[in-house]
Simulated scan of single mutants.
Amino acid sequence: MKEAQAVCQRFRKKTTFSNRNSTEEELHAEVCYAECLLQRAALTFLQDENMVSFIKGGIKVRNSYQTYKELHTVLQSSSYVHGDNHGHFEGGVKLGVGSFNLMISMLPTRTLRLLEFVGFSGNKEFGLQQLTEGAAGQTFRSFLCNMLLLCYHTFMSFILGTGEADVEDAEKLLQPYLKRYPKVSENIVACTLSIQNIKNTYSFHDID
């Protein structure tokens, strides 16, 4: 992971990047760099649970979050020029921005207030919108957006007790993959069965 981050670092803009003077290659390097930071942060948390590791991981997460926010601003800028690989850049930004907004918004209120104090913010509806748009694309990050949405609709909402899952949307997300891959993997079959079980459970409670 360190080597991957080092490669991204070589192609990143040496100064603060912006839409006007950044090349498409530099913008893509920023997306990959933010992803590396987030993955390294997760590994830092898992590797050692002491306070120093927690602080180091937190700094990496915040840097990744800020990078995604800046990239989203670039993406929304009227002066941004779509390059040949615009779809992959857009997909990466939507995956990062959507994931952060969705995950942060689902944290307990006290934790959320603390994170807002240090610069984080989360909007669940905006996060779901970004992930949905990312899943609708044809990039290699589209599948990741799709998996996050499926996880949210089929497991996270029920585990956290929000009761805001949309089972119908989860089924719609699976349909393109079921058509594209007739010899579907066991994981997708299991996911389909889980969705059906959830629907049956809701139907049972509705009857009561």
Rank of each mutant, 00 (worst) to 15 (best):
F126L: 13
I159L: 14
K124E: 01
C145Y: 05
Y152D: 07
T109I: 14
N146V: 04
K124V: 00
E171G: 00
R141Q: 08
G137W: 03
E168I: 05
D169I: 02
M103T: 11
L149H: 00
K179E: 07
K179Q: 08
E125Q: 12
G161T: 03
M147G: 03
T139N: 01
T132Q: 01
E116N: 15
E164Y: 13
M156S: 07
H153C: 03
R110M: 11
P108T: 03
G122L: 04
L107A: 14
L112H: 10
Q175L: 11
K179L: 10
T111S: 13
V118C: 09
Q130H: 11
F155N: 13
A136F: 01
K179T: 05
C145I: 04
G134T: 02
F140I: 03
D169W: 02
R113D: 14
F120E: 01
L114W: 13
K172A: 12
H153W: 04
C151W: 13
M156P: 02
P176S: 06
G127A: 07
Y177G: 02
A165E: 13
L173K: 02
Y177S: 07
G161A: 05
Y181F: 11
C145T: 04
L150R: 03
L112I: 08
E168M: 05
K172C: 12
E125R: 11
C151G: 13
Q138Y: 11
S121H: 05
D169R: 06
G122F: 00
R113W: 15
F140H: 06
E164H: 11
K172E: 13
S157W: 12
Q175P: 05
L174S: 03
Q130V: 03
Q175C: 06
C151A: 13
N101W: 06
T109C: 14
K179M: 09
L131V: 06
L114C: 14
S157F: 06
P108R: 06
R110E: 15
R113V: 10
T132H: 01
